[in-house]
């Protein structure tokens, strides 16, 4: 990463595929597994993460020359906590139902490793413009995986997607296990396996 010239294009391919936060770096597992029972929840979570990631990357990048090395992580976390509070209050005010459903997982974005990882790996070394793009790219990479995982789980556990659209035929027996923790772990495990398989074939 460090040697390559950072451009908009390669930041996007890195964020979405070759360094996808969930599939490749295995970061931010706990929201990935916890909020993917439904597509709506996953999408809300993904958008909140994109918002926090862009804002924190921008702020960290602007203050990167003022930071003392040993206080760095502390400042990152405080910045992130401030933006997460904003996102949380916004959701409470405009989407109270969703906010109640996601519960503590919204504040838990503070300790989501993706955000600290991007602050440390990109925003603390690069200018504000590329940091914002980087935040957007990795945020989208995270959201896409979240939505794929959530659609698989929601379709298999209820037969519907977005809570209303019926996908499965009438005689479909809901697969209760998919809504439970075990469904999350096993589905993600198999997804990672598939990704490994796909990359190996290409190489």
């Amino acid at each position: 990463m460090a040697d390559k010239q950072l451009t908009v294009g390669n930041t996007f391919t890195a964020g979405i595929w070759s360094e996808n936060p969930v599939l490749r770096l295995l970061l931010g597992m706990c929201p990935t597994l916890a909020v993917t029972t439904g597509t709506k929840a996953a999408l809300t979570m993904g958008l909140s993460v994109i918002f926090v990631l862009i804002c924190s990357n921008l702020v960290v990048s602007l203050m990167r020359n003022l930071l003392k090395p040993h206080l760095r992580i502390m400042m990152f976390t405080l910045t992130i906590a401030a933006f997460v509070t904003i996102a949380d209050l916004f959701l409470k005010a405009y989407l109270p139902e969703m906010s109640a459903k996601l519960g503590p997982y919204i504040p838990l974005i503070i300790v989501n490793c993706i955000i600290i990882c991007r602050a440390e790996a990109c925003a603390s070394k690069n200018g504000p413009w590329i940091s914002v793009i980087d935040g957007l790219a990795y945020g989208i990479g995270f959201t896409v995986v979240l939505c794929i995982l959530a659609s698989i789980r929601e379709v298999l556990s209820t037969g519907r997607i977005f809570e209303t659209v019926q996908v499965m035929p009438g005689g479909f027996v809901p697969w209760a296990g998919m809504a439970m923790p075990v469904g999350a772990f096993v589905t993600l495990g198999l997804m990672l396996g598939l990704v490994n398989l796909a990359t190996k074939k290409k190489a």
Binding site: A184, L188, L192, N196
Partner: peptide, 14 residues
């Protein structure tokens, strides 16, 4: 081979 490392760990966790 494709399940080695993280994938098998996740399945075990499940």
């Amino acid at each position: 081979e494709c399940l080695q490392g993280a994938p098998i760990t996740l399945i075990t966790a499940g």
